[in-house]
Every structure is written in structure tokens, then in C-alpha cells.
Lab assay of single mutants.
Amino acid sequence: YETDHQDYCEVCQQGGEIILCDTCPRAYHLVCLDPELDRAPEGKWSCPHCEKE
């Protein structure tokens, strides 16, 4: 299903190369994640907010 994702990072509120959560509309820079990621994850990815739930 399609979600309207943010076009900015949930953490720093800036645009650029962001990865999109497959569960919610949030988006993140790899370096803004904690722990940060070296590269975009393959397959489905859930953001830290969704992982907690």
C-alpha cells in the first residue's frame, strides 16, 4: 500500500537522501538514525519509532 512519506528527515528536519519507513510516513537520513546506518537497508525497513511499538 502507498503512504505519503515526508520529504524531510524526522530527526533533523532537513531534506536530501533519506530512507523511508515501510510502516509509517516517517523518513530519515542514515546518519541521523541511532545507531546510524552505513547504507540503506535491503527489503522492508521499519523506523526506530515503529520498532518500539
Rank of each mutant, 00 (worst) to 15 (best):
L30T: 10
P25C: 12
L30S: 06
E2N: 15
G43D: 11
L37R: 09
Y8E: 13
H5E: 08
Q14W: 03
L30D: 05
H5Y: 09
C12K: 01
Y8A: 15
T3N: 09
E42T: 07
E10G: 08
D4P: 06
D38P: 08
A40G: 03
I18H: 13
Q14L: 08
R39N: 12
E10I: 13
C32I: 00
D38R: 04
T3F: 15
C9N: 04
W45K: 10
G16V: 09
D7G: 10
D34T: 05
D22I: 11
Y28T: 06
Q14A: 10
G43R: 08
K44D: 04
L30N: 07
P25Y: 05
C12E: 01
C21M: 00
E36I: 08
E10F: 10
C50S: 02
E42K: 07
E10C: 12
K52D: 03
P48S: 06
W45H: 09
V31M: 11
D22T: 06
Y28G: 07
D38E: 06
D7M: 09
E2P: 09
P41W: 04
E17Q: 08
P41M: 06
A27E: 01
C9E: 02
V11N: 14
Y28A: 13
Q6M: 09
T23I: 07
C50M: 02
D34Y: 04
H29W: 02
E42L: 13
P25L: 04
C21W: 01
D38S: 09
E53W: 03
H29Y: 00
C21T: 04
C24D: 01
T23F: 11
C47T: 00
C50K: 00
Q14G: 08
D4L: 13
P35Q: 06
H29K: 00
L30V: 11
Q13K: 10
R39H: 05
G16T: 15
V31C: 05
S46W: 10
Q14M: 11
A27W: 05
L20N: 13
Y1T: 14
A40Q: 14
V11P: 12
D4M: 15
D38N: 02
K44A: 09
L37N: 07
P41R: 09
C24G: 00
T3G: 14
D4V: 14
P48V: 08
C24N: 01
I19V: 08
E51Q: 02
Q13V: 10
C32E: 02
Y8D: 10
L20Q: 08
Y28E: 03
C47A: 00
P35V: 12
G43W: 04
C24Y: 00
E51N: 08
C12I: 00
D34M: 03
G16N: 14
D34P: 09
L33E: 04
L30M: 13
Y8R: 15
L33K: 02
E2T: 15
H49W: 06
Q14E: 11
V31H: 12
D38C: 05
L33G: 13
A27G: 03
R26Y: 08
L20P: 15
Q14I: 07
C24A: 01
R39V: 05
P48A: 12
C21F: 00
Q6G: 05
D4Y: 08
D34V: 09
G15D: 06
C12V: 01
T23C: 06
C9R: 02
K44E: 09
E2C: 14
C50V: 02
E51H: 03
R39M: 11
P41K: 05
G43N: 14
E42W: 03
H29D: 02
E42A: 07
I18G: 09
L33R: 03
I19T: 12
R39P: 09
L20S: 14
T23D: 04
D34N: 07
L33Q: 07
C12P: 01
E36P: 11
E36N: 14
